[in-house]
């Protein structure tokens, strides 16, 4: 099959010994692809400086959130700010489990997120591919219409979607929770962009081999789009994980709510126990963060080093 030949070809390219004329870089061990790259462009001091300082700035509010999750409510709200609690309040994390049916809400979150992510990857890659690489009447117009739904404030959809779900008899059900989120204009646009950037020769070759458009899409183009698919997966997971208004409106049982909605119930109209909110939100984001760490190493790096670009 064509995709395998591509795979083999690039892999061969990758294993070709590196050009010897690298400038400046202290060449350590030779022969591996890694050092081949390491040789190009000299030292990384500036890069480390920029990324290190920038990264710390980016992470700072988050680190502070961790500290707040271990403080008392008085310390969190104190002026002047308290940077380190008098005593670490690990109890705040235990209280999360008292206040929320955390595990059953986690389960709901995982379920709806998996369903939506799989559905979006499937539907968006299909449509994105068609919009990018196929010719059909009305393509531009349809794409514009799909994109146009991004331009309306999301609250506009609330009432209509609620009544649609009500009409389908899906209020307070898993189906009602996931349904509108199965379809994504953003994802379609993302995948269209990814497919647009790909070379046409691969499709041509497969077509000459007698593959039909679906086979070309599935076996040739889809594997090439993996980096963008992982981006789509990450963004969909995050969006679904943090989504607040919709699950709050369509569910009436706290056990059926996803975590995002459960967390919001910790915020009171007059007084709020902020450390518990901080602790709960850190617990809730942990699975997504772990997923990202795995994805960015396995998928983005993994694909790059296997030569499947």
């Amino acid at each position: 099959m064509t995709d395998r030949t591509t795979f083999v070809r690039t892999r061969t390219v990758d294993s070709v010994p590196a050009p010897v004329l690298g400038r400046g870089a202290p060449s350590t061990t030779a022969r591996t692809a890694r050092t081949r790259r390491g040789r190009r462009g000299g030292s990384h001091v500036v890069a480390h400086l920029v990324l290190g300082v920038g990264g710390l700035l980016m992470a700072f509010p988050f680190v502070w959130q961790i500290i707040m999750s271990l403080s008392t409510n008085t310390e969190v709200q104190s002026v002047t700010p308290v940077f380190w609690p008098a005593e670490l309040q690990w109890d705040n994390y235990a209280r999360v489990f008292d206040r929320l049916p955390f595990l059953s809400q986690l389960q709901t979150s995982v379920t709806i997120t998996v369903i939506r992510t799989v559905a979006q990857i499937l539907l968006c890659t299909l449509a994105g591919y068609a919009f990018a690489r196929m010719r059909f009447r009305g393509r531009g117009l349809l794409l514009a219409l799909v994109l146009s739904i991004l331009m309306v404030p999301s609250q506009v959809y609330l009432l209509s979607q609620y009544q649609l779900v009500q009409g389908f008899g899906l209020l307070d059900s898993l189906g009602g929770l996931v349904l509108p989120g199965l379809f994504s204009a953003f994802g379609t646009f993302l995948m269209r962009t990814a497919f647009l950037a790909m070379p046409a020769e691969l499709e041509e070759a497969a077509r000459l081999d007698g593959a039909n458009p679906f086979q070309i899409f599935w076996k040739v183009m889809l594997p090439l789009a993996m980096p963008s698919i992982s981006v789509l997966a990450i963004t969909t997971v995050l969006w679904s994980w943090n989504e607040l208004l919709w699950p709050l409106v369509v569910t009436t049982f706290s056990e059926k709510m996803p975590l995002s909605a459960g967390l919001a119930t910790l915020i009171g109209d007059r007084t709020t126990d902020y450390p518990v909110v901080m602790a709960a939100s850190l617990l809730a984001m942990a699975p997504v963060l772990i997923l990202f760490i795995v994805l960015q190493r396995r998928v983005i790096d993994g694909l790059a080093s296997s030569g499947l670009k």
Binding site: H48, M285, R297, D301
Partner: peptide, 24 residues
């Protein structure tokens, strides 16, 4: 940059704000 050490760590640092829960 090829061969950049700690690239994964940096990526996570820059990604953190995007994961964090807005209200918190």
């Amino acid at each position: 940059l090829p061969g950049l050490r700690f690239a994964g760590l940096y990526r996570v640092l820059f990604f953190l704000p995007y994961v964090a829960m807005p209200t918190a």
